[in-house]
């Protein structure tokens, strides 16, 4: 597993001197950001409508389709129940079919997106469920179409909950990207595994840990801010 992914990682012979850490870590960090970014874009585009569909196909939803709801729910639950490492390994043929490779960022994006979509669909469904049914009744009585009701009443009211869930999702995807690093996906996780774990390079290990902790903390703070911003009561009542 010493193959250099994307040709961008600098490989020294002994422990990496501190001065050379940025040259090693920055490109890897960039890869992590790209990987998580691509995955999140796919997850948002696919997972959001899927969550809305799941919620409204359920009994009590805007267009009840019990059979569709059961099938969809079951597929998502299967996706969610596999540990990510296993999911990643088990869909290698599918990944190879889609991307033509089973290493690298492109290959990591496929299993990460699948796991992420399943995760985010549940987050959206859960957020919509917290919108009081009376709000949906109001929207229906106001003459809204299903699409209008989903957008303004259901999703509009659930935005803070969805963004809170999105924060959790981004952090989970950073973690998944690190796991994907073990199959040579590149990124910070790959550096942590190859240098920190396989070569016992404590400097690199510590540096990757610090970077990951800082990243996760930043995402969480940004997410909390965002939730605050979209919740009028929290935005206007500064405690």
């Amino acid at each position: 597993m010493s193959a250099v992914v994307g040709g961008s990682i600098y490989v020294p012979r002994a422990d990496v001197p501190v001065a050379e850490l940025p040259a090693l870590l920055l490109p890897a960090y960039g890869e992590t950001v790209v990987m998580v970014g691509i995955v999140m874009a796919i997850v948002l585009v696919v997972g959001t409508p899927l969550g809305v569909l799941l919620h409204n196909a359920a009994p009590g939803g805007l267009f009840e389709r019990p059979a569709l709801h059961a099938v969809l729910g079951w597929i998502i639950s299967v996706g969610r129940s596999l540990p990510f490492l296993i999911l990643m390994a088990s869909i290698v043929p599918f990944t190879r079919f889609l991307t033509g490779t089973n290493i690298g960022i492109a290959a990591a994006v496929v299993p990460m997106s699948l796991a992420g979509i399943a995760f985010f669909t549940r987050i959206v469904e859960n957020a919509l469920r917290s919108v009081p049914p009376s709000i949906v009744r109001v929207a229906r009585a106001s003459g809204g179409s299903n699409l209008q009701i989903m957008r303004s009443a259901q999703f509009g009211e659930a935005v803070p909950a969805v963004l809170g869930g999105l924060t959790i999702q981004v952090i989970a995807m950073i973690e998944y990207s690190a796991i994907a690093g073990t199959i040579g996906a590149g990124g910070i996780g790959y550096v942590a595994v190859t240098y920190g774990y396989q070569r016992f390079d404590n400097t690199v290990m510590l540096a990757t840990i610090l970077i990951l902790v800082a990243t996760v903390a930043f995402v969480q703070v940004a997410g909390d801010r965002l939730v605050r911003w979209v919740t009028p009561q929290k935005r206007l009542q500064r405690a």
Binding site: P132, S134, E157, P160
Partner: peptide, 16 residues
């Protein structure tokens, strides 16, 4: 439905 206006219990306003 637009020909009938409904006032709901405790208003049920959109919070955002």
């Amino acid at each position: 439905r637009r020909r009938i206006g409904t006032v709901f219990q405790s208003a049920s306003l959109l919070s955002r």
